[in-house]
């Protein structure tokens, strides 16, 4: 579990699971609005910072009334994607029924903690430290999707290249 602050005094908690057996059920619950969090495919993540960037932007756009999707959780998933195509974003960064690893992202007020045990009760899987997310990353797929050039990798880490595209995609 990892807890970080974002804008408007909100906090983001990330919980990572592997060997998940009930992905289909979780996905259905999330679509029905019965899970208070975004379910993210961790193989498309380079690190937890990427999620903070997406969540911060989602909360900002929600406050200014400029979200591209209907809910904050959907907006987080949308923001992780390098393109402005919503269904593509869900396909790549949301979870699929057969997935075995899931990152749950929850935006909350700093004093809220109840949801952690609620989510743990729902997920049938093994919790991992969030910093281990890169052990699950599919780097080749990420580089391909984000169109990272070999020259760009010389400028700095992959995470930088990914985050930069996420931050700028709305004006590309």
């Amino acid at each position: 579990m990892l807890n970080g602050s974002i804008c408007f005094q909100q906090r983001v908690t990330q919980i990572l699971y592997k060997d998940v057996k009930n992905a289909a059920e979780l996905r259905r619950k999330a679509m029905e609005g019965n899970i208070n969090g975004a379910l993210v495919n961790p193989t498309m993540l380079v690190g937890p910072f990427q999620v903070l960037v997406a969540a911060n932007k989602a909360v900002h756009l929600q406050t200014t009334g400029k979200m591209k999707t209907k809910t904050l959780n959907a907006e987080i998933i949308f923001n992780l994607s390098p393109t402005n195509n919503i269904s593509e974003a869900f396909k790549r960064f949301g979870i699929s029924d057969g997935d075995h690893s899931i990152l749950v992202v929850v935006v909350h007020k700093s004093d809220e903690v109840q949801f952690v045990s609620d989510i743990s009760a729902m997920v049938d899987g093994q919790q991992l430290p969030v910093d281990d997310v890169s052990s699950l990353s599919d780097f080749n797929k990420i580089k391909k999707l984000f169109k990272i050039t070999p020259q760009e990798e010389k400028c700095g880490p992959l995470l930088d290249a990914v985050v930069c595209r996420m931050a700028i995609k709305d004006v590309l």
């Binding site: 050039t149 760009e152 700095g156 930069c164 931050a167 700028i168 004006v171």
Partner: peptide, 27 residues
């Protein structure tokens, strides 16, 4: 604001170092 972040990305893609953009508030 828009031109600045666009050019930064274009440079970085070409392998020219420029600061990573984390977030832009257009408001």
């Amino acid at each position: 604001t828009v031109q600045e972040v666009r050019s930064i990305l274009r440079c970085r893609r070409a392998g020219i170092s420029a600061p990573v953009v984390y977030f832009v508030d257009y408001t």
